[in-house]
């Protein structure tokens, strides 16, 4: 099998390492995901559709994907701004600001959840500024958006940042010597160069937001049909021992996410082709 399957290589250890890897991937990832793909069909096609068609499920999916798209869309300009300032800006505390960007990666979601809730609740430091006007941040859709923007921000910043760093200054200088004004430089020179990275960041922030659970359930209020996200509905179905129902929703979420990601991928390939 080694002869044709793996290109000959003097380095040792492929056999055992590959065996170990395959065992590891199969046991921890592939078999469990296979269970997820197979399980829903125990309901039959009609059962799957019925399970997906309930108003509560539709509302949850709409909220999860709508809010995630919205949050990712906010993350793109916000992340670009932060990345740009971190790469090009010279101000005291820049390194600290740079380190802060990674915090949503590292902070456990439950901790992020109660921290954000504390801040944006009607009696919190920020929530209290809005409460007099009857604007609810926590326990409503804006709160969900805040949590999702929080979770997705580092993905955009960290994909755009290296590209901005590699963007040679002389290209912009060349554009300037050719008579381009700063906005034109931004739109015609900088943006096209970082567009693929922005798209990747968008896709990653979106994927993270769709699946986000820990931080959202603290701040969301979790009202069925209003502020109940799809992952929470999966948990609720599991608590009712409706395994197949939970699996249907999970599979639907994965299918929708991967379709989105595939679409973004396609756009990127089109961009790459256009860019030559």
């Amino acid at each position: 099998m080694k002869g044709s399957f793996v290109r000959p290589n003097p380095l040792p250890g492929f056999g055992p390492a590959f065996g170990l890897t395959l065992t590891w991937v199969s046991l921890i990832v592939l078999i469990p995901l296979a269970a997820l793909v197979v399980r829903p069909w125990s309901l039959g096609i009609a059962g799957v559709l019925a399970s997906l068609g309930s108003p509560r499920v539709l509302a949850a999916l709409e909220l999860s994907f709508g809010a995630s798209l919205g949050a990712a869309a906010i993350n793109v300009p916000l992340g670009l701004l932060v990345a740009w300032v971190l790469v090009r800006g010279r101000f005291p505390g820049r390194q600290l600001a740079d380190a802060l960007v990674d915090l949503p990666f590292a902070l456990p979601t439950a901790v992020a959840g109660i921290a954000l809730t504390t801040l944006y609740a009607p009696n919190g430091w920020i929530g209290r500024l809005f409460a007099p006007f009857g604007v609810e941040l926590a326990y409503a859709v804006p709160g969900i958006m805040v949590a999702l923007v929080f979770a997705g921000l580092p993905y955009v910043v960290r994909t755009v940042q290296p590209v901005l760093m590699d963007l040679p200054a002389d290209v912009e200088e060349a554009a300037a010597t050719l008579g381009a004004r700063p906005p034109q430089i931004l739109v015609r020179v900088v943006l096209p160069a970082i567009l693929p990275a922005l798209l990747t960041g968008f896709a990653m922030a979106f994927a993270r937001a769709v699946g986000e659970y820990g931080s959202v359930i603290f701040i969301a209020g979790n009202m069925p049909g209003l502020t109940e996200i799809a992952p929470l509905l999966i948990v609720i179905r599991l608590e009712q021992f409706d395994y197949s129902g939970a699996a249907v929703l999970a599979l639907a979420m994965l299918a929708l996410s991967f379709t989105m990601l595939a679409a973004v991928n396609l756009v990127q390939q089109l961009l790459a082709r256009r860019g030559g």
């Binding site: 078999i31 992952p231 999966i234």
Partner: peptide, 20 residues
């Protein structure tokens, strides 16, 4: 396959084990 868990919701990451 190895990177798959990154794009799966944590809730689903738990769910798969319940299904097994």
């Amino acid at each position: 396959f190895i990177e798959l868990p990154l794009s799966v919701s944590p809730v689903i990451s738990g769910l798969v084990w319940v299904l097994l």
